[in-house]
């Protein structure tokens, strides 16, 4: 989750637009490698919009939960299960 200033209000003039372009690039990479493009998202809001921040955070949490575990975690858990523990089973 990446937060930027409102469009047109960036202290660095076009910093938030450039950030959005970079987020889009990561978005594309995640999509191409099947991790899930929805795992990254950029929001724009001002420093005084606390309630909006909370709403965006909740929205993103819902989005991530809907996507389920990342394929990386699934692969890691699968690998951990396959590692021999050394226990002797009769």
């Amino acid at each position: 989750m990446i937060m930027g200033c409102l469009e047109g209000n960036c202290h660095f003039v076009n910093g938030n637009f450039r950030a959005r372009a970079r987020v889009q690039r990561v978005h594309n990479i995640l999509e191409k490698i099947n991790i899930g493009a929805g795992r990254i998202r950029m929001f724009n809001l001002s420093a005084g919009e606390g309630a909006k921040f909370a709403a965006y955070a909740n929205e993103f949490v819902d989005q991530i939960q809907e996507l389920g575990p990342s394929p990386i975690n699934v692969a890691r858990k699968k690998e951990a299960k396959n590692v021999p523990t050394g226990e002797i089973t009769a």
Partner: peptide, 11 residues
């Protein structure tokens, strides 16, 4: 990083 993620996800 991209390659590591992609390869780890594919097992």
């Amino acid at each position: 990083s991209t390659l590591r993620l992609a390869r780890e996800a594919s097992g």
